[in-house]
């Protein structure tokens, strides 16, 4: 069974948000790019499944929509342990267009399931995985916090309010994953980094698609008034402020 993992190439989570061109374009100056954190957890789980002798997973392919500038991030995924990669050559500006472009490539591929992170930490759309499922007309499970593969049989654990559900599902399907799918992302080892250079990274042309959204302008949060410091010998003051000023208690 082959697994696909969709990768987003996003600014490092410690990046300060800055914008140019009259606050209409994200300023990429000095930005470090990383694998979207949820996608990295998905990739980690995919590789664990490939290594597990009880599962029939034998190949992990990463796929991304991005320009050439996304290739260092893709190489990192190959270094972590993906077998090969597909880059769909387009600027990922709109979730609907990205999902359509992914679907256009994946419709001709044979796979057990596709894993997508639940959200990207740049535009926070929480959209691509679900949209991809609908474009491919495949079942999807979202908020997936675990995937088990026994031979050809796949089950997933879905987070629900106050607990979880175990779901059996026939392949092929789309798993939209969040924390719990794995806990710590795997870090590339030196051998992996060496091997990644030789692994196939196929670039394919993007299909023509419509954009449905346009990020017209950005704003930064209003600066917060300074924190009111309370004397540690007078904890009662905190209670009074919460009660009388914040009107919470």
């Amino acid at each position: 069974m082959r697994i696909f993992v969709c990768l987003g190439n996003v600014p490092d989570t410690t990046t300060k948000a800055k914008f140019t061109e009259n606050n209409s374009v994200f300023d990429t100056t000095g930005v470090q790019w990383i694998i979207n954190p949820w996608d990295e957890l998905a990739l980690t789980r995919a590789i664990e499944l490939k290594e597990d002798a009880n599962s029939s997973v034998e190949k992990v392919t990463v796929i991304t929509v991005g320009t050439k500038s996304a290739e260092p991030t893709i190489r990192k995924a190959l270094a972590i342990g993906a077998d090969d990669a597909i880059r769909i050559d387009a600027e990922p500006n709109d979730a609907y267009a990205v999902a359509a472009q992914l679907a256009d490539v994946l419709k001709d591929e044979d796979f057990g399931f596709v894993m997508c992170g639940i959200e990207s930490c740049d535009y926070n759309g929480s959209a691509v995985g679900g949209m991809l499922s609908e474009f491919l007309d495949l079942p999807s499970v979202s908020a997936v916090a675990g995937v088990e593969v026994e031979g050809e049989k796949v089950s997933v654990s879905r987070t629900i309010d106050g607990g979880k559900e175990i779901i059996n599902i026939d392949t092929p399907f789309i798993a939209i994953v969040h924390k719990g799918i794995s806990i710590e992302p795997r870090i590339p080892a030196m051998r992996g980094i060496m091997m990644a250079r030789k692994k196939p990274l196929n670039v394919v042309e993007a299909s023509e698609t419509e954009l449905l959204t346009d990020h017209k302008s950005f704003e930064l949060p209003q600066p917060k008034p300074p924190c009111k410091m309370i004397d540690p010998e007078n904890v009662k003051e905190l209670f009074d402020l919460l009660q009388n000023e914040a009107k919470i208690m």
Binding site: P11, T13, T15, K16, A17, F19, C121, D122, Y123, N124, H215, K216, S217, F218, E219, L220, P221
Partner: peptide, 8 residues
């Protein structure tokens, strides 16, 4: 956007 570091 950017997980609360900005708005769009």
């Amino acid at each position: 956007v950017f997980t609360g570091k900005a708005f769009a």
